[in-house]
């Protein structure tokens, strides 16, 4: 849990005790869902050139994961996070478990990991070969640790990152993953089917940030057949207690060029 929120919540409790029994948390919480689909014919993912540790890594039929279009043309690995600073956080959403980023099958798994400020991230290596994980953060001190086969290392972040940070392995140049560092728990990465869910958001107006590694900030989305400009990948949404569904959002193939 980020310290600023801890302090906020602490203060809120004091205020609540002193003033009224009403909570200063958002009164209601809602869930945000949506799905991104690829407009056009899904391109085949190009094969990666495996030229290091060939005997191990060539077994995995590795492909370029910059753009993964899964079932029903869903676009995977799109990052959605809440931009608002000091957003109210649902008390159930305390991040206690460390996030795991695995070096698995000579690739990073998950491809995009989400971690909160102060939360531990365990980078482990389930492969029979050694890896290193070079995390190129901008605001946080960048780290690059050697991780032997079966080993793991633990890192954490002191501040949030406005853009997801690339994770690479210097031994296996084709390996690339991403880490999203936020100071609240409200972020999601789309799955194979292109859908995402963010639970227990405070009801009301929120600003979302949409990002994809190939496209950068997603600024042109077709919603309900209508082309919508989303300036700098920022999108205002109204979170309703009953739940908000953004529905099917189509990303034209040109977005990913």
């Amino acid at each position: 849990m980020p310290t600023s929120n801890v302090r906020r919540i602490g203060l809120s409790f004091a205020a609540a005790l002193l003033l009224t029994p009403a909570s200063v948390f958002a009164a209601e919480w809602g869930t945000l869902t949506g799905r991104f689909v690829f407009g056009g014919d899904a391109p085949a993912a190009p094969k990666l050139t495996v030229d290091k540790d060939v005997d191990v890594c060539s077994k995995f039929d590795l492909v370029n994961e910059e753009l993964v279009v899964g079932e029903g043309k869903g676009v995977a690995n799109i990052v959605i996070f809440v931009r608002d600073k000091n957003v109210d956080v649902h008390p159930d959403l305390k991040a206690t478990e460390p996030v795991v980023l695995d070096n698995l099958g000579c690739r990073f798994f998950p491809h995009v990991a989400f971690v909160q400020v102060g939360q531990d991230m365990v980078i482990k290596n389930s492969d029979p070969v050694g890896h290193n994980s070079n995390v190129a953060t901008l605001k946080n001190p960048a780290s690059n640790t050697l991780i032997p086969a079966g080993g793991e290392t633990k890192i954490s972040f002191r501040s949030d990152e406005a853009v997801p940070a690339a994770v690479t392995c210097n031994i296996h140049p084709w390996m690339k993953g991403w880490v999203v560092v936020r100071d609240n728990p409200y972020a999601a990465v789309t799955g194979e089917d292109g859908s995402f869910t963010i639970e227990k958001l405070p009801a009301g107006e929120l600003e979302l940030q949409l990002w994809h590694e190939k496209a950068g900030y997603l600024d042109t989305i077709v919603i309900g057949g209508k082309k919508t400009d989303v300036k700098r990948g920022r999108m205002d949404v109204e979170i309703k207690a009953s739940g908000t569904d953004l529905g099917e959002m189509v990303l034209d193939a040109s977005v990913f060029k």
Binding site: K52, V129, G130, N132, L146, P148, N170, I171, P173
Partner: peptide
């Protein structure tokens, strides 16, 4: 060995010829 893995970049000869296509930051 697989634990320190120096050989991957510094090469089996130690001549620094194990990894030729990387960039510094």
């Amino acid at each position: 060995g697989n634990k320190a893995n120096c050989v991957k970049c510094h090469g089996v000869t130690g001549l620094g010829d194990g990894q030729a296509n990387d960039y510094d930051d």
